[in-house]
Computed example of a mutant assay.
Amino acid sequence: MAARPTWEGHLRLSLVTCPVRLFKAVGEGDQVHFNLLHRETLNRVRQAWKDPDDGLVERKDLVRGYQVERDRYVVVEDEELKKLKLESTKVIDIERFVDGREIDRLYWDEPYYLVPDGKPAQDAYAVIREAMRGEHQVALGRLVMSSRERIVAVEARGKGMLLSTLHSHDEVRSEDDAFETIAEVKIDKRMVEIAQQIIAQAKGPFDPAEFHDRYKEAVRELVESKAEGERVVHRPTQEPAESNVIDLMEALRRSLKAPQGPVASDKKEERRAAPARGAAKKGSTAKGGGSGERRAPPRKGGSHAPRRAAG
């Protein structure tokens, strides 16, 4: 569990209240972070704010300003914002229960673990959790987080509860604008049937461990290689063929015979490469070390699975 909670307050269902804490359910993992350096001195540079009339400005002299018209701002102080205390600042008040499947996936945002704060909170927390689990319902409420009120969904998860922030209606853009250029086309039913067979071949359980970030791994290996003074040789990436749309039926038929899915392909590649890598390692040891050359994996984006709406 994280050492510091993201939010602390109370969860309230009618007259039943219990103190709770929020912890982030998703982190950055082992991301590679870069610092900005001056190319010539390799010194780390620092961010600075500059007033066009008065030069550099220190952070303590910065204030919040809301633009009401060109070159005219309303200044709002931190103390003024603190005085705008809503009830949701410290209380998650459950307002409604809904079937989680009714919430469009576009609205789901960040997940947090919601846990009881202290031993006295355990009983009330368990009662609310089990009541929601028994009815297969998701609780909707509000809380203030990062200087804004958020709509949240709370659901039972294992022996605890999961709270997910939801996007507000005005944040979700209409699909009509994005899809307006999609034309109505007549589809050959035989092509659809072949595509369905391809889908059937690629079906399988969702294992998030299989969908790793290959680009992050490539960046990390590049950094490690450069740190060790090795010369990096990049394998050329294979660009997707653009000619497969000329004969769509033929492309579908050939796809039926091809290995399905990047995960399956990666596993087969690993199985084929494993003996060779082992042999190469033995050979390099016998010769007193390798050639000092490492091949970095191709730069590709990772696969992402959509977040499941609670049910």
Rank of each mutant, 00 (worst) to 15 (best):
E270H: 04
F211I: 14
G289Q: 07
M249H: 02
L143P: 00
I92P: 01
K282T: 12
A153Y: 10
A310Q: 07
V127F: 06
Q238I: 13
S265N: 04
R64D: 03
E230F: 03
V32H: 01
L162W: 04
Y215N: 11
A258W: 10
E293T: 09
E149D: 14
L36Q: 08
K60G: 00
S164V: 15
P297F: 13
T165G: 03
E293Q: 03
I187P: 01
F206K: 11
Q137P: 05
R295A: 12
R142V: 13
I92R: 00
G229F: 12
E184R: 05
G55C: 06
Y215E: 15
P116V: 13
V76L: 13
P297Q: 06
D51A: 05
I199V: 15
K300V: 14
A273V: 15
V127M: 12
E135P: 02
R12A: 11
R150F: 03
A264V: 13
R44W: 05
L81R: 05
V185T: 13
L256R: 03
M1A: 08
E80A: 08
G29N: 06
L163W: 10
L56T: 06
I199Y: 05
E110H: 05
G288T: 07
H234T: 14
R72H: 09
A121C: 04
A3F: 08
K50C: 05
V152Y: 09
V219C: 00
E242R: 12
L222R: 13
R70A: 10
V223C: 10
I198T: 05
G290L: 13
D188L: 02
R44M: 05
R190W: 04
P236M: 15
G301I: 13
A227D: 11
M145A: 02
A183N: 10
R133S: 05
A124W: 13
K257C: 01
S146Y: 11
R271I: 06
A296P: 04
T237I: 09
V263E: 07
G261N: 03
S225D: 09
D188P: 00
D30I: 08
L114G: 00
I151H: 04
E58C: 08
R46C: 04
K159V: 10
R294H: 15
P120F: 14
A156W: 02
R21G: 00
I246D: 01
A121D: 04
R272G: 06
L13F: 15
P208E: 14
T17A: 10
S88Q: 09
R129M: 07
V154A: 09
Y73N: 00
N244D: 13
P19Y: 07
G27N: 14
